[in-house]
């Protein structure tokens, strides 16, 4: 049963209403159900994590919110406007894994493309880019090529690219997945500080429990495929969060609760991977 903590609608930056997604698949007559009737309202300035076992459709949901995929049914409203399978780069910026920086352009050239597509005047490109790079402590690497930087540095830059376009909403699709545990935590901390300043609305997909607890205001726990919202966990901890928060008893409790909820879903997901839906090859 979908959980819907309906806040005041005027407050909702993103409103997901009954979103269902089916994929065509060999051997399954009406396709594979990836997302089943998802409804969720996200308030302005809120940081929401989508957490779930792999293959549960959390990235699919994020891509639907960003207008990169079109849902089979249901709708998404962003700032009251219906997202209809087309991106809204003026409202929404994406941050994917660090490898989405274009390797044939220098860092600053990567930023210029994002700013140009956003419709920013050419005279402002470099100022805006440098400002965002300074915010993540990477200003001195503006003229480097991405593969001259470490993975962690690249992800800082990639985050800055998402921030420099100054959209109200940031969608982050497992941005730290390629990073080691330590860099993840440090970057998460920086992100927490950065975002407390900008007041952006953020939807963040992850499969890291600690990351979810440390960063989110609310965590939407999803079920194994077909993806539904199993429950929503409130973190109730002001931003920016100090690393001490990770040592607080509440942090551990929340993480354990989440793990308990996820464990059965992970088992279901693993079982269905051994026995694919509809007997088709997946």
């Amino acid at each position: 049963m979908p959980v819907d903590t309906a806040p005041d609608l005027a407050d909702a930056a993103i409103s997901i209403r009954g979103v269902t997604q089916r994929y065509a698949a060999a051997g399954a007559a009406d396709g594979v159900l990836a997302l089943d009737n998802i409804s969720l309202d996200i308030r302005r300035g809120e940081f929401v994590c989508l957490l779930g076992p792999s293959g549960c459709g959390k990235s699919t949901l994020l891509n639907i919110v960003g207008g990169l995929f079109k849902p089979t049914s249901g709708e998404v409203l962003v700032g009251g406007r219906r997202v209809d399978g087309a991106p809204h780069p003026d409202e929404i910026a994406f941050v994917f894994q660090e490898s989405t920086l274009f390797p044939w352009y220098t860092i600053i050239e990567n930023f210029r493309i994002a700013l140009k597509l956003r419709g920013v005047a050419k005279s402002e490109w470099d100022d805006r880019a440098m400002e965002a790079l300074r915010a993540v402590g990477m200003a001195s690497f503006a003229r480097h090529y991405p593969n001259q930087l470490s993975v962690g540095m690249r992800q800082r830059v990639n985050m800055a690219r998402g921030i420099c376009v100054e959209t109200n909403i940031l969608l982050m699709d497992e941005p730290f997945a390629a990073l080691d545990e330590q860099s993840r935590m440090v970057l998460g901390e920086d992100l927490s500080i950065l975002l407390a300043k900008t007041g952006k609305t953020i939807v963040f997909v992850t499969h890291s429990l600690a990351e979810a607890v440390f960063l989110s205001d609310r965590i939407a726990v999803m079920t194994a495929r077909p993806g539904r919202i199993k429950t929503i966990v409130d973190v109730n901890e002001p931003h920016p969060r100090a690393p001490d928060f990770m040592l607080a008893p509440r942090f551990g409790e929340l993480r354990n609760d989440l793990f308990a909820m996820l464990r059965e879903e992970i088992r279901v997901a693993m079982a269905s991977q051994r026995d694919p839906v509809g007997g088709g090859v997946t």
């Binding site: 960003g66 990169l68 991106p87 780069p89 994406f94 989405t100 274009f102 956003r118």
Partner: peptide, 18 residues
């Protein structure tokens, strides 16, 4: 072509020409 690069381009509002 890396599909993630194409998706990033599209999410930034890039056209097919971009």
């Amino acid at each position: 072509t890396n599909p993630l690069h194409l998706r990033a381009m599209r999410s930034m509002g890039g056209t097919r020409a971009d």
